[in-house]
Amino acid sequence: MRTRVLLGVAGILLAGYGIFRILDKPSTSQPYEILRWLIGAVIVHDGIVVPVTLTCGAVLSAIPAARARQYLQGTLVAIAILTPPVLVEIRRRGTVASAKALLDQNYAAHLAVVGSVLAGAGLLAYLVRVWRDQRTSRTNVRPAQDHEPPSR
C-alpha cells in the first residue's frame, strides 16, 4: 500500500508540475490550443481509429477458416500498427529542402515492401502451423488450442 501511495503522490506532483508550467507560460504554451489537441487526440482515437479497427475485426471474423483467419488477423495487426507514422511520412514527403535528406524516401513503396515481408512471415508461420497440425492429427492427438475451453 505504501508503494501505491508513494507512486500516486509522486505522480500527482509530477503531473501537477507539468500542468502548472504549461499554465504559467501561456504565451509560449497556448493552453487552449493544447486543450484542443488533447481533446482532439482522444476523439480521433476513441471515436474513429478504434471503431474502424473493431469494424475491420468484425468483418474478418466472417472468414470461415478459423485457423487461417488467426494468422491473417495477426499479420494485419502487425502491419496496421506500424502504418500510422508512415502515413504521415507519405503525406509530408518532399516538403523540405533536399540538403536535409529528410522525407526523401519513397515511403509508400517501402511500406509495401515491409508489409509484404510481414505478410510473407505470417504466411510462413501459417504453413508451419498447418504442417504441425497435420503431423499431430496423424498421431491422434488433438491440435493445440489457443484458448482454454470455456469454463461454463
Binding site: 507539468g18 509560449t28 511520412e89
Partner: peptide, 30 residues
C-alpha cells in the same frame, strides 16, 4: 518531420507534457 501544424512552442510544450504523461502514468500504476 519538421512539420509544425500548431502555434505553441514545441520544445516547451513537449517537455511539460512529458511531465504530465509521466505523472499521470505513475498515478495510473498506483
Amino acid at each position: 518531420l519538421q512539420w509544425y501544424p500548431w502555434h505553441f512552442g514545441f520544445v516547451y510544450v513537449h517537455r511539460m507534457l512529458a511531465y504530465v504523461v509521466s505523472g499521470a502514468l505513475l498515478l495510473h500504476i498506483a
